[in-house]
Computed example of a mutant assay.
Amino acid sequence: MGTSASKLNRAIMADIHRLSLNQATTERWSVKEAVEGCLRHGIPSIGLWRHKIHEAGLRESVRLVRDAGLHVSSLCRGGMFPAPTREERQQRIEDTLRAIDECAELHADSLVLVVGASSAVGLVDARKMVEEGLAAIVSHARESGVRLGLEPLHPMYAGERCVLNTIDQALDMASPYAPMEVGLILDTFHIWWDPYVLQQITRAKGRIYGFHVSDWLVPVPDLLLGRGMMGDGVIDNRTLRGAVDRSGYAGPIEVEIFNQAIWDMPGNDVLSTVVERFTSLV
């Protein structure tokens, strides 16, 4: 092998230690298949989704990641707090309390909170319900050793998925709590558009629990399933990563892609592309 090729391989291996596969990127795979895929491709961390864990069983999921020596970068998700009735809101709080227990069992870095939205209650009331829902779970998370990661989502989701839409807004909601209790998950798909994103990332120093990457395709093929592989769209993932790194985050970087075309590809082909694009573009 030539000298230049050897240097390239060393650079790839040096950087891949930050890479984490968010399980959503290989939606068709079970926990077992995703774990095995990470091992085949040298990916050291994985972000797990609760519906996949429930399919496999929590105990089996814990065993699989432990035996593989994988680090669990996140568990997704809790939250979805707004709802028109008190009973529904309480059910969502109780579900998130269960998610905290699952996160503790998996020794995940944080529980991702997609806080929810509801057209039935309106934006102002929905945000108040999120504050109330967060307040109801923080003590259990603290006792369980679980960090709660608020994920601000792109404003196009404010009506049905998430009423936290900027980093500053999420930081304001996290501010009543200690930096190691409530922080942020920053996803480039959701934050890249903001003209103040770099200043907001700087402000988030000490509360960044996770960093996710993908790309924004032009045109966007679907509001939910329209994310692209890094390099196929317009997001400058490397600049955003640099800002996050300078703000003190040195943990795993998850590749999280919701895209039916990618889900329909062979999973090993997806992971090969993930590794190549991550090391060259992130």
Rank of each mutant, 00 (worst) to 15 (best):
I201F: 00
R28E: 06
S30P: 00
F278P: 13
A158F: 07
V146A: 01
D187G: 11
L111D: 04
E88W: 00
A243D: 11
S119F: 01
Y177F: 12
E33F: 05
Q169M: 13
V163K: 12
S30T: 13
W192T: 11
G248C: 07
V62A: 09
G228H: 04
V213I: 15
H17A: 13
I262R: 05
I46Q: 10
Y209D: 06
L58D: 03
D187V: 10
V124K: 15
M230E: 05
G210Q: 12
P44N: 01
K7W: 14
E132M: 11
V218G: 06
A261K: 10
V182G: 08
M1S: 15
H17C: 14
L184Q: 08
F258A: 08
S144M: 05
A135D: 12
T273W: 10
F189D: 02
L39T: 08
F278T: 05
I191Y: 07
F211S: 11
E105A: 15
I16K: 15
A120E: 14
V31P: 09
V234N: 10
L198M: 10
I43N: 07
P152T: 04
S119K: 10
P44H: 04
S6N: 09
E33D: 15
V138L: 04
H107N: 07
I12C: 03
T96F: 05
P252H: 12
L198W: 03
V182M: 10
V255R: 03
P266M: 06
R50S: 14
P221K: 11
G233P: 01
A243K: 13
G149M: 09
N259W: 00
D264P: 00
H190M: 05
S214E: 12
A174P: 03
A243E: 11
W29M: 13
A120C: 00
